[in-house]
């Protein structure tokens, strides 16, 4: 897979999950490690914790002028509310990714490539639900070639507090391995993506 000129990733969840951090790491990977262009915008409500929150990342080989995503190409949902609010904005043939345990109620996703991962559960197993965002980034690195997986892994290592670096890298790898396993499984069945 070669990267298309412009990739648009929309990550949504609630405050405290590290949604903005995930967007930041993604943009960092593209800008500082892949040496491409990236913008990351955040939206959030008045709540310090728990309110809905999202980050939108555009990655391109050219300068990005308009930093807003109208119809995301990749939508990552880490909350039911985020899913419900944004799933309709996803463009046709877009990719929908969700946290298996956090998005329970879904509509038909015909025409979409879909993936899900129990990112929060994995993070908890690894010691802290705080790392769910990093598990999710690892998963993204496996299932979508938005930035190079190596760049994303390096950006994770560079962005987390030094004391938690090892754990976060483990979280990233866990997500990535899970994603690779899913892809392998689908390749066996001759499917590009699950259509729910």
């Amino acid at each position: 897979m070669t990267a298309s000129p412009e990739r648009q990733v929309f990550i949504t969840g609630f405050g405290g999950q590290g949604i903005v951090m995930a967007g930041d790491i993604l943009g960092k990977a593209a800008t500082l490690y892949d040496r491409r262009h990236a913008t990351m915008m955040q939206t959030y409500g008045p709540e310090a914790r728990g309110g809905s929150c999202s980050s939108q990342v555009i990655i391109s080989d050219r300068e990005i002028l308009f930093p807003c995503i109208g119809e995301p190409e990749v939508l990552i949902c880490m909350s039911q509310e985020g899913y419900t609010k944004y799933v309709k904005t996803l463009r046709r043939r877009g990719t929908l990714i969700w946290d298996t345990d956090l998005v329970k109620s879904r509509k038909s996703a015909a025409g979409l490539t879909t993936f899900n991962i129990p990112a929060t559960r994995f993070a908890e197993e690894l010691g802290s639900t705080m790392m769910a965002n990093i598990v999710m980034l690892g998963f993204l690195a496996a299932v979508q070639n938005v930035v190079s997986a190596g760049a994303l892994r390096d950006a994770v290592a560079d962005s987390v507090p030094p004391a938690t670096k090892e754990n976060n890298i483990r979280a990233f790898d866990r997500g990535r391995e899970y994603g690779e396993a899913i892809l392998k499984g689908r390749a066996k069945q001759g499917l590009a993506g699950e259509s729910a």
Binding site: G27, T31, A38, T39, M40, P67
Partner: peptide, 9 residues
């Protein structure tokens, strides 16, 4: 707000 909160190179 956008310039302030947007990340870029």
């Amino acid at each position: 707000e956008v310039v302030g909160h947007m990340n870029e190179r």
